[in-house]
Each structure stands twice: as structure tokens, then as C-alpha cells.
Amino acid sequence: MMSEVRFHGRGGQGVVTTSKILANAFARTGQYGASFPMFGFERRGAPVTAFGRFSDKPVREKTQIYNPNILVVLDPSQKKAANVFDGLLPGGMMLLNDKKNTDDVRHENLRKLAVVDANGIAMAEIGLPIPNTVVVGAFAKMSGLLDIAPVLEALADYFSGKKLAANEICAKRGFDEVRIVDL
């Protein structure tokens, strides 16, 4: 079974790192993960889309994802953008970084909505509004595809020292504090 995940955010939010950490965490469980972003020039603030395929079999596809079953939105301003929902498969789920307990995000194919105040948690723990490591923890909880342990192990490939410790707390808090609603 392959999960196809599309990530929406902006340059500087760690969209690419989010997708990398998740691919890394899946690989640690003996599963397979492949992720890549799509953008032109690297620059802060520009919309960035990334794609992740997570599967129990090797992932060979090297194309963008047009029919995701999971959406991850790191940029709250894009939560209602029409293109975010493009091609969402029936039974789909969405993880949203938003401080509000959003109940106005709906789509006919959306069956599960998870909301986490990733910016708020990141500000408290690392002092920067970079939501990515909160989001990876919340993703594990929402999707049910990963335990928090491989996510925490994966973080060590991207951070070290105090930053690692702070980001581990971010991921744990994301896992524990995400609010999940079945629609």
C-alpha cells in the first residue's frame, strides 16, 4: 500500500525538510520513502510544493503527485486555496498548521482533518516560526503509518546538539497535541 502525500508551504518553513524527515522515518521502519520538492529558484516566502511517497514496497515513480490521499499544509494562508485540494482522493486526510481550531476547512473527499499549532509550538521550543518538526510528529499521529520513535531517530540526521533536543520536543508535542477530527 502506497501513501501519496502532497506538502504545501512557503520557502523557509521547512517544507522540503518535512518531506525528507518523513521519508527517512519510513526507511527506518523497513518501509520505503521517497520525497522531492518542486520549485524554480530557491527563495524565502515563495510557495513550495513537495511530494512524498511512502510504501511497504520500493518506490520507483519519479513524478509529481496529482492524486494525493494525504495533504500536509504548513502555510495556514493556503488552507482554503483551491489548488491545495486538487485531485484529493476520496477518504483523504489533511494535516494543517493553524493556531485556530479550524472547523471551516471542508472538502467532499476529506474524511479526516488534523490541526496543530505548529508555529506556536515551534516559537515556544526553538524560538523560530519553523513548523516542520512539529508537523512530522503530528503526521505520524494523524496517518497512523508511523510511530513517533522512528521520527525522533530520523531527526538526528538533520539536527544536532541543542537544536536536536528542541526539535525532538517539537515532534513529540506535535504527536501529542494534534487535534484530529473525523468528517
Binding site: 521519508a23 526507511a27 520505503y32 520513502g33 522531492f36 520538492p37 518542486m38 518506490v59 519519479k62 513524478t63
Partner: peptide, 12 residues
Amino acid sequence: YDGFFLSYLSEG
């Protein structure tokens, strides 16, 4: 190797 599709692809 293909830019973007492979240069930025993270996999095992």
C-alpha cells in the same frame, strides 16, 4: 542525472 526530479529526490 535529472535536475529537480533526481537532484532533490530523497530516497534510501
